[in-house]
Simulated assay, not measured.
Amino acid sequence: MNWPLSILGGVAVGTGSALLPVVNAEAYALVFTANQPWMLAPVIVALAIGQTAGKLLLFEGARRGSARLGAGSKVAALAESRWASRIRGALVRRRTAMPLMLASASLGLPPLALVSVAAGASGQRRRTFAGLCLVGRIARFAAIAVPVAYATGIR
């Protein structure tokens, strides 16, 4: 596979995994870097960009209101859940909002889908959310893929 297709594939898988739980970006990072360890950095960044773009769609959906999306939508259900209301409470305070968003993006706890919806509903800044999501996702994919790339031959 040539490098432009690898990068486009990483963005596509990242976006898909941000919106569909059955698509696994972490597995893509592992398999791809095991087979092509020299593409480690571009694929990690591409996956992170795709994930951030997908989470921004959830963020914007919640920001614009669940009424536009319909009462039966998944975003509306997430926005009204008990977890989302707790997370939204933490996101209102700037002192707790940034660490919560970064922890969610890098560790996955609380789930980034919930944090994305809650951040949009609580009025967080789009740039702050996107930046923290991108940094956290790069760290997450790097922590998963770098050991595999080094074990399979990157020097």
Rank of each mutant, 00 (worst) to 15 (best):
M1G: 09
W3D: 04
L5P: 01
L5V: 06
S6A: 14
S6M: 14
I7W: 14
G9V: 06
A12I: 05
G16H: 10
S17G: 11
S17R: 11
L19H: 01
L20V: 14
P21V: 11
P21N: 08
A25R: 02
A25T: 01
Y28L: 14
Y28A: 04
L30G: 14
V31M: 14
F32R: 13
T33W: 06
T33A: 15
T33H: 06
A34Y: 12
N35K: 08
Q36V: 06
W38N: 09
M39N: 08
P42F: 12
V43H: 05
I44E: 03
I44M: 08
I44A: 09
A48R: 13
A48G: 06
T52F: 07
A53K: 03
G54K: 06
L56F: 05
L57Q: 03
L57D: 00
L57R: 02
F59T: 06
F59I: 07
G61S: 04
A62V: 03
R63S: 08
G65S: 05
G65Y: 03
S66M: 00
S66Q: 04
S66C: 02
S66W: 00
L69H: 00
L69G: 02
A71G: 05
S73H: 02
S73Q: 00
A77L: 07
A77R: 13
A77I: 00
L78Y: 05
L78V: 04
L78A: 07
A79R: 03
A79G: 01
E80L: 06
E80Q: 12
W83Y: 08
A84P: 00
A84E: 01
S85I: 03
R86K: 10
I87L: 13
I87W: 09
L91V: 07
T96V: 14
T96A: 10
T96M: 09
L100M: 08
A103N: 09
S104Q: 08
S106P: 10
S106E: 10
S106A: 15
L107M: 15
L107R: 10
G108S: 07
P110L: 13
V115N: 07
V115T: 15
A118L: 11
A118Y: 11
A119F: 09
G120N: 02
A121I: 02
A121K: 09
G123P: 10
Q124I: 09
Q124V: 05
R126D: 01
R127W: 13
C133Q: 08
L134F: 15
L134S: 03
G136Q: 11
G136I: 09
G136M: 10
R137W: 12
R140N: 05
F141Q: 10
A143H: 01
A145M: 13
A145D: 06
A145N: 11
P147D: 12
A149S: 12
T152I: 10
G153D: 10
I154P: 02
